[in-house]
Nucleic acid binder design. Structure first.
Lengths: 228, 228, 228, 228
DNA sequence: AATGAATGAGAATTCATTCAT
DNA sequence: GATGAATGAATTCTCATTCAT
């Protein structure tokens, strides 16, 4: 499993939607403060409960200033999702660096994903809510993650590490779905007294999932009952 | 995989939130009309775009009447999600009736789920949106589905049809996550010119998923590299 | 000069823009209170300084109620202009009733117009401001007045009371323009200490204007120097 | 009819409202660019739709710079109206030069006024809008025009070219009102496919108006029925 | 049991003006 | 002289909910 980062260009020069001109250094700092505030507010309150006033207040910035940097509530939300996508992919590819086997890489990739989810539980909610706020940007999010996953699977199939009968695209989406629901169920729903999720997945669950995935991907030694 | 219906009692006598008394026959009919209108409106417009007026207008009922049957917008939404949950589970268990093998049952259960999703794409969206409207009711939804799934897995493990090393709860959630994302990606995102999703999943995807699950669940013949 | 009232239908049944249904009696009363409040507020503050809150506060009505009766600030403004148009035409035709000669009718018509302007000075401002708020409705206003005027001129030409060489349409617009500017200058600009305009036009001005119009319309006895 | 230009001093030295000191040559150029931009923007969009940013952007000047030259949006608007007043009066007096008779002068004056209106329809709209933005400056506008008109009428009365029974002030205002409404109706409302008004007034209208005015002003040969 | 007029808190957004650079 | 980021008061409009009929 590889997540070739940089496949997508996230570094385009930032433009003020109000003036159409590139941001000055001061401007970039303000924009960043807004994004950070939005992260907290959207995460804590959800998209519809959040409001631009809440965001600017948290950012310690005048209300009108918001519109120098973002067109609307939706547009800062989208910017935030894209930002989170970049970070979760980074967390995953970082975790996978130095993996020595396919299984190791799998395990590490999921561990990276779960760690990000556990550390930013509320942020993960933001991503999922995007389905109802900005479906296009959610597609982008999932697609970017799957692309890397799928490429890794193909490579592993070539060297015989993964069952060649599996369709890589289907498999990639299926595995991501697994990860999402497991993360939701066993991290986001398992809050302690302070409302914090566990720092990491329960080992029973993590190992159970690892075994499941290992089973699923391993090349078959004997030919099982064929499909249909 | 079994979905023991009736595990949850959906047939409690209906009470008017306004008067606190049970509904008359006429009242029940009005309530039903409201729910049916809500189904269409929430499905077409989503929770936040929907409004009580739109629902009562569609139901051909006075605005004030709404509050004789439901406490709030959220409460009719929740009632609807519970109704949909019942129906999707019914679609799945119906599909599984008469399956002769574990694999067959798996396949049929997923097929039932996908059929429901394809036939009521917007309704399924309602269920997913519940995560942000009423998290408790979404948990209920998932949990009810998983419960049946998990029970089925345990039985299959006992008779040796499923790898005994798998944790049934983890596995059930993982498989449901797979199903969800596959359904989202290959049904909900694949609209034709009229915006209708395909009537059923692309066979490549369906077979790919079946193989993946079959791999994942099958008892191992040889002992693979164990988890760290 | 005749102002055949009823040429335009102002009595169409009133419809709620929110529900699309005809107004109940209670609804009509509320609508009327809003229009009366709007009259005062627009007159005192002008269109842009006026606000929907100011209107509803003055009407002693909840803010949200406004939108049950009017779509927007502009739409109540337009309704008001149409209402004023009806009233100024009524004031004019009433004044002209019982005039025995053409000159008498002229004089009475203008007197009616000036009386209305003097009694509702600020309202007259509303009409003029319509040019910049809703040009279509202003056209309607002027056109409705001119239509009656023009018809009267044609009749008077037929019986030889008015110079047949005059173009009736041009003449009607010209006379209305006269009346407007005279009213503006010698009524609206001539406020007393309390900001009230004079109850009627200075006789010097009124007589001066009467003579001017009488000159202008009278059939010529000798043929003057013809137009180029 | 004469329009003694220069009756009002438009050439006072320009002062920066920010520093209180006279403008440098560079400053005067910037001020001029702002006024030119304001002319276009106010004309195209009207006072309330116009904004300082639009003006400075059009002028190619920084937003903050605006306040070095004008106190406020209203003050640049007023400066513009005064400028337009100068130009429309110039257009009129230029047209009247070389008129040989009173009637000729009348006709030429109105023609000059209509030519300006036809050539700068949007600018003329600016002047009319002044009534609601800055009533004082509109009074100034009208008064300056009327003053010249009235002086001309008095002279003509002295030499017997104009009915001595007419009140010159009333007459001047009445004639200006005529011109305004005729211009509005037959120039500003008569746009072609491109939204351009006709280059000049329809001859039927122009001649009709000329006859009307000629009738109105001509000394009476026989004594008509006197005013009540 | 049914109705729909009334409500007002709350949201997004605009823009003239200020002021530190 | 010139700049443009920052500001926040003010505005329009929505809609879940109440309540008198």
């Amino acid at each position: 499993m590889t997540l070739p980062d940089g496949m997508v260009d996230d570094d385009a020069e930032l433009i003020s939607p109000a003036t159409g001109r590139p941001l000055t250094k001061r401007g970039e700092a303000t924009r960043r403060r807004l994004l950070e505030a939005a992260e907290v507010v959207f995460a804590e309150q959800g998209y519809h409960e959040a409001s631009i006033v809440k965001i600017t207040e948290r950012a310690g910035i005048g209300l009108g200033t918001f519109y120098l940097y973002f067109d609307s509530k939706q547009s800062i939300f989208e910017a935030l999702v894209i930002d989170l996508n970049r970070r979760v992919r980074h967390s995953m590819s970082e975790a996978m660096e130095g993996a020595t086997s396919r299984l190791d890489a799998e395990r590490a990739g999921f561990a990276g994903f779960f760690r990000f989810t556990a550390e930013h539980p509320a942020l993960y909610r933001v991503v999922r809510e995007a389905e109802f706020v900005s479906p296009e940007v959610l597609r982008l999010h999932y697609t970017r993650i799957v692309e890397g996953y799928e490429a890794g699977l193909r490579q592993a199939q070539e060297v015989g590490d993964v069952d060649r009968a599996l369709d890589p695209e289907t498999t990639a989406w299926a595995l991501m779905g697994m990860g999402e629901l497991i993360g939701m169920r066993f991290l986001l729903w398992e809050r302690d007294a302070d409302g914090r999720p566990p720092a990491q997945l329960d080992p029973v669950v993590f190992d159970g999932m690892t075994r499941l995935i290992d089973n699923a991907l391993a090349p078959r030694t004997t030919q099982p009952e064929g499909p249909k």
